[in-house]
Write a protein that binds this DNA or RNA. Structure first.
Lengths: 157, 157
DNA sequence: TCAATTCCCTAGTAATTTACTAAGTTATAA
DNA sequence: TTATAACTTAGTAAATTACTAGGGAATTGA
């Protein structure tokens, strides 16, 4: 699978929508300013999100975007797939050097892992994230990520 | 977080090592041929893996690479972090438009999600994947991924 | 009806990343 | 001493990311 900054922008924007779309539509200009993403880039991302019916646009003054369905019906996997064209790209076609070949084995192991990650992200919805934000005092606590960074970047020998 | 084809190459190569490194070191030339990855690109990836002690190189004829530690001590997160320089890049520094600002809230929500994904990948080891390969007849079954693809790419309305 | 607003669409492009080629140097086994 | 294979650096084509520019189409309100 694939999880890039592009997917992050999309999730962030959708979160913004979920948080602010309660009373009326949210404009891309607002999201652009809120999240520090260029307006035109947002328009591209929302074209993809709209194509997958994850958002619904309303034109004209007072217009903007709504979520395309309830926040608990939109998974993180949905959002990332919409903008990142998550295609399966490792698939030996059953021919070639496939019998007993190592290549196919590792590929299918990767495919399994890829699927697991997908299933995991499929379980997390926008509503979950919003809920999480409500429970913590999330606004702007400085979290001590130094430990996390150490843990991530190595030394876990 | 970040999960790209580069990380996939690294995981695939490490899997190859785990599968074939039982009796003697594995050369990059072998992995290159097995997995269809260019030799020089592998050398770049292994430079990063070596820096994080995930692999150990042996020079000279009969040389090659070993895993740097036991397969059950190497997580998928370890591998991806080694080659993808997974840095936290969304962190409002507690200043700026942070009080009550939406930007910080969505950023911290994304950070939480990012951490969750990391924890998930941290739980899966190379040994797990190898074990999974042993249990299935994994060599080269054609799996019907069309359903999966449908599921991934939309229509989940 | 008209003007402002906002979504919507296309084309182009700088910056970055990916994946690779090329051309070496260094250590080691035979 | 020679072949092997790890190591290293530099350069580069292709793809992706993120953005700019310049429109058009629908809708609201004056």
């Amino acid at each position: 699978m694939r999880l890039s900054t592009k997917g992050r922008y999309a999730v962030t924007a959708m979160l913004d929508l979920a948080l602010n779309g309660q009373d009326g539509p949210v404009t891309l200009a607002d999201i652009s300013e809120n999240q520090g993403i260029s307006l035109s880039y947002l328009e591209q991302l929302f074209a993809a999100l709209r194509a997958k019916k994850l958002v619904r646009g309303v034109r004209g003054p007072g217009g903007g975007y709504f979520l395309g369905r309830e926040a608990d019906e939109i998974s993180i996997a949905n959002i990332i797939c919409a903008v990142d064209e998550w295609v399966e790209f490792t698939r030996c076609q059953g021919k070639q050097d496939c019998r007993g070949g190592q290549r196919c084995l590792t590929h299918s192991l990767w495919d399994d892992l890829s699927r697991q990650i997908y299933d995991f992200l499929e379980e997390i919805t926008l509503a979950d994230l919003v809920e999480r934000g409500r429970n913590s005092d999330a606004g702007c606590h400085k979290h001590k990520d130094e430990d996390l960074l150490d843990e991530m970047t190595g030394k876990a020998a």
